[in-house]
Structure formats: structure tokens, C-alpha cells
Amino acid sequence: MTVRLGVNPIAWSNDDMPALGGDTPLELCLAEGRQAGFAGFELGHKFPREPDALRPILARHGLDLVSGWYSAGLLDRTVDEEIAAVQPHLRLLKAFGCSVMVVAETTGCVHGDRAAPLSTRPVLDAGQWAGFGRRMTAFGDYLREQGTPLAYHYHMGTVVETPDEIDRFAEVTGDSVGILLDTGHLTFAGGNPLDVIATWGHRINHVHCKDVRPDVLKAAKAGDSSFLDAVVDGVFTVPGDGCVDFKAVLGALKAAEYRGQWLVIEAEQDPAKAHPLTYVTRGRQHLSALVAELGL
């Protein structure tokens, strides 16, 4: 197994709350990511979305494109409508040879609304799961045929958030729907990454590595915080700075024969409180030492 270490620009400039890092130029983000030792970046809202515009920017910094988030709407759309909607994003990822497409169902989601407590997120009833799973599987089949397999991102504030919902989602979808292991969102939702790896390790095709500050998490849950308030308060941090045992996580991924190409640090924080270069460098050092120790 050989994995590469990537980073998400959300440490510098937040996609869900653009005021966080809104003045940070993309060039600074990329330069600091390269300085920290990362091999690639996932997309953020400041990235050009045309291959000919993005390619020279990444090339200047010696960086690859890892992947990029796609907001699906399969609870409202047909599969054909989703396939039509994904074309610009798919063309971009294919142009850079990305190994997966990060996909999350965002119908009715509240993670981008700072005024919405997480308790107000959408929840599927028992009768919705089978149809949702069929549509997502058909979408996954299409993306696999295109050479950019689907990596499903469960996420706070969406219809797939809790450990039980992750299990239900995996049960109603086929193997063309990969599972993105996000250590931070899973911990926030009360789950354990080791349990998901033990059950669904054969489906995991991408990994987001974020750590969690347990004191901030406890307060966010007690106060029924919005997702963005929790982020601003510092619920997430980089690997090695919180309560997630990344040595155990990476060891379990190795045992499950993780077939993804990347481990991506994706730890959104307020850059005014958590200096991006300092934190992502710390996170990369922690992960790279574990990768070397474990032989990933």
C-alpha cells in the first residue's frame, strides 16, 4: 500500500462560511500547502473550474488535484437529472485524473446555515431509504463507468450523519457507492471510525482526516449548536491535536487493505484563531510519521 497526503483548502478559506478566510488568496493557500509538504489539494470555492485555467495554477506549485465535493440532490432529482447536473464537475475531475468524486446528498441540509441548530437537519423516514439507495447506486454506477468512482461523504447536518444512518445507507446502496471515511464528522455524530472500518472497510475509497476537540464537542451538543458555530468555536482540528486515535485508524485501514490513493487533512477552523500553515504542518507531520511507522 502506498498512500499520498493531500489537504483541503478549508483550513485557509471556508466553503460553507466564506467569511472565514475570505481575504486569503488562493495562491497563498497553495504555496503554504506545498510548503507544508502536501502532494495535492481538494477543490475549494476559490479554485477555477475550467481545466485550462486550473492546470497552470496547480503546476506552479507542483500540486495534483485530489478530488472535489459535489452536492447531490437525488432526493429531489431523477438519476438522469443528476447525471446532467454533474457534467461540469465530472469533466474537471476527469481532466486531472482524479481517483474519486466526493459526493454528499444535500437536499434540505443545514450545515451551511449558521442559524440552524443541528437538531433541525433533515431525517429520512423508513420508506425513503430504498428509493434513495437505488438512485445513488445508479449514479455510482455511472461515475464508475466514467472512471471517477463515487466516494460518499456522510456529513453533519445532512440526511446521512449518524453511525446508524451510515450503516443504513451502505446497506441500501451497491458497491459502486464507495464510502468516504471522515474521522471528524463520525466522531461528532457519536461514532467510532474503527467500527465503520470494521464493517465497511471494503467500501472505503477515500479518507478525510480531521481531529476533534472533545470539550468543544461536548458544549456544541449540550447547546444544540449549529454546525458552523461549532466550527468557529473550534470543534475540529488537525490530526494529533484532538481525541481521535489516528494510529488505530490507519492501522485498521491497512488491515482492511484500503485501496484509496489519498489521506486528506480536512480540518476546518477559523484561520484567525488557528494559523493555517502552522496547523496543517502539524497535522501532516503527525500523519506522515504514522504512515511511515505502519508501512502505508
Rank of each mutant, 00 (worst) to 15 (best):
S13T: 15
L228I: 09
I10F: 08
L228C: 02
L290C: 11
E293H: 08
D215A: 14
G133E: 06
V238R: 10
V212G: 01
R49G: 09
Y258H: 12
L75N: 07
T187K: 12
L92H: 05
Y70Q: 05
G174R: 09
A39N: 10
D175Q: 13
Y154N: 12
L124K: 00
D125R: 00
Q269I: 06
A255H: 11
D245P: 04
V249E: 07
T120S: 14
V231R: 00
G190C: 14
L296S: 02
D167M: 06
L30N: 04
G223V: 05
F41I: 14
V212T: 03
A104S: 14
Q87K: 12
L20T: 08
C109D: 02
R55G: 00
A230Q: 05
R121D: 00
D211V: 07
Q35V: 01
I166H: 04
V235R: 02
T120M: 03
T237N: 10
G21W: 00
Q128I: 01
P122T: 11
G240V: 13
V280R: 02
G44M: 09
A84R: 14
R144Y: 13
F188E: 08
K94N: 01
R77L: 10
E266W: 08
A104K: 00
C98A: 13
Q269W: 01
T237G: 15
H89Q: 11
R114H: 03
D229E: 11
Y154G: 03
E82A: 15
K221T: 04
T78Y: 00
A115E: 13
D182C: 11
